[in-house]
Amino acid sequence: YTHPVKSIRNKVISQLLSSEPAPLRASPDPVTPDSDLKTLMTLCDLLNRELLVMISWAKHIPGFSSLSLVDQMALLQSGWMEALLLCVVWRSLASTQGLEFAENLHLNEPQCKNAGLLELYTPLRLLIDKYQQLNISHEEAVTLRAMALANSDAEHVENGDSVLRFQDGLHEALQDYEVNERAAETHRVGRLLMTLPLLRQSSHRAVQCFRRLHIQHLVPMHKLFLEMLDTKI
């Protein structure tokens, strides 16, 4: 008698994993001498490219494309920063301090402070610690990212029922995954979902931080990034 073959990861999570884009690298300007401003410019350029990829990734979340265009825009306008930050958190899990924005852009606390990103550093390190303690898997991380987008409390939702169905589909996928993969941890789904308020708080701080940097004309920002920042104000 052989153990039943482990249930194939549910379709939603395997779809999320298969549409995971390859991590981007930072593109620091080789000519500009290293400085806090250069760090910020490199980071804003990277985040704008991440944003482009994330918008395209969102279209591949099971259920997202069945939403109206208005609702797709609404969820992205309200949840984009949370989704971006979860990518940073996931990449930073291997490190005991600092934030890994890209393989070639790792900022420790003093660097974040000097670049004016300390208000972002603190809550994100708290979130990273939580996920390290939970030993979060890649499947859980990509599902949480999709849920953060689906659950982003957009103001102008056109069809609430279809957004609810979108959320339920992701919730079911996470529950199905935990039942199959972590059956012994009966509170795991709840523990993962209870990290989302901190993600929301981190997202608001990040938006305020980049908005302040923009208003002070400290760093040039791409039009898409500014357009999305503007929606969060």
Partner: peptide, 20 residues
């Protein structure tokens, strides 16, 4: 939609994240 024309355009084109 006018205010968020870049997002609007991105949602309508069909680039895959892997390509991007």
């Amino acid at each position: 939609k006018e205010k968020h024309k870049i997002l609007h355009r991105l949602l309508q084109n069909s680039t895959s994240p892997v390509d991007l």
